[in-house]
Amino acid sequence: MKIINNSNSVIIVLHEIYGINQHMQTVCKKFSIAGYDIICPNLIKLNQPFNYESQEEAYQHFMNNIGFDLAFHQVKQLVIQSKKKYRYVFLLGYSIGATIAWLCSNEDNLCDGIIGYYGSRIRVYMNITPKCPVLLIFPTKEKSFEVKEVVNSLKKMNINVYILNGKHGFSDPFSNNYSAPSFEKSEKLIDNFLRKIK
């Protein structure tokens, strides 16, 4: 998915395990209206996204058929191509997309900034030292790990990291975990973050 406004800045949106669903389309449109060019690669290589009830199937599909290494290399190539055209290249990732963005932050002169929502797998890659500005946003509760422990470790790296009230998916209006107050706070954090870089 691409939306071109002939901007000097592009946001590459990295979706969750579900693929380019209604939520990702809404995110892309919102940042397009703000004037950015948008690229949202289909990392799961399927014509239709998974629905939320198929979470386990979607997760297995990603882990068995794509995985973080392949997704990282695909996104890295996309960023390299985008750098030839744009002055600023930002990555905005959700869940697995946030972890892929985090992996890209480890590369010199690759991204101008990365934003990650609830990248739970970032905890596996804590050896990374970001080479660009990073904004990470976590929910108060995650099933698979203790959020405060990971956030405290990330804060020691001098990273912009926040915990907002809610569960995984709080920024997705199509999710049962949606929290409007936390979503609005996250939007302000992102706007401020992007404004400081440009």
Rank of each mutant, 00 (worst) to 15 (best):
32 S>G: 05
71 A>H: 03
196 K>I: 10
183 F>S: 14
20 I>Y: 03
44 I>T: 10
108 D>I: 12
103 L>C: 09
111 C>Y: 06
84 K>L: 11
24 M>W: 00
148 K>P: 04
193 F>D: 12
179 S>P: 09
37 D>A: 00
141 K>I: 07
44 I>N: 12
157 M>Q: 13
146 E>N: 13
21 N>R: 01
182 S>E: 03
32 S>V: 00
62 F>R: 02
101 A>P: 04
29 K>E: 15
129 T>P: 04
74 Q>F: 03
107 E>W: 09
184 E>P: 00
50 F>C: 10
105 S>A: 13
32 S>H: 06
186 S>Q: 06
186 S>V: 08
180 A>Y: 14
115 I>Y: 02
96 I>T: 02
75 V>L: 12
22 Q>M: 07
181 P>V: 02
60 Q>S: 14
14 L>A: 05
186 S>N: 07
189 L>Y: 14
106 N>P: 07
158 N>T: 01
121 R>C: 00
80 I>Q: 15
84 K>F: 03
180 A>N: 15
117 Y>P: 08
70 L>I: 12
107 E>M: 08
85 K>V: 15
129 T>Q: 14
185 K>E: 13
85 K>E: 13
179 S>F: 15
60 Q>F: 13
168 H>A: 13
72 F>P: 03
81 Q>E: 12
104 C>Q: 11
196 K>H: 05
110 L>A: 07
119 G>F: 05
61 H>T: 06
3 I>F: 09
63 M>C: 09
80 I>N: 15
141 K>G: 00
19 G>I: 10
95 S>V: 06
198 K>G: 05
4 I>D: 15
157 M>F: 10
197 I>V: 02
89 V>A: 01
183 F>K: 15
20 I>Q: 10
179 S>I: 14
37 D>F: 00
89 V>M: 04
22 Q>I: 08
83 K>V: 01
147 V>N: 08
159 I>K: 05
113 G>C: 08
84 K>W: 01
169 G>T: 00
128 I>T: 04
9 S>Q: 14
83 K>E: 03
100 I>C: 12
111 C>Q: 02
41 P>H: 05
3 I>G: 06
190 I>M: 13
159 I>G: 01
158 N>F: 00
19 G>F: 12
76 K>T: 08
108 D>V: 10
143 K>L: 13
48 Q>L: 12
176 N>G: 11
158 N>I: 01
191 D>V: 04
119 G>K: 11
55 Q>Y: 00
175 S>P: 14
52 Y>H: 09
90 F>S: 05
45 K>T: 05
190 I>E: 11
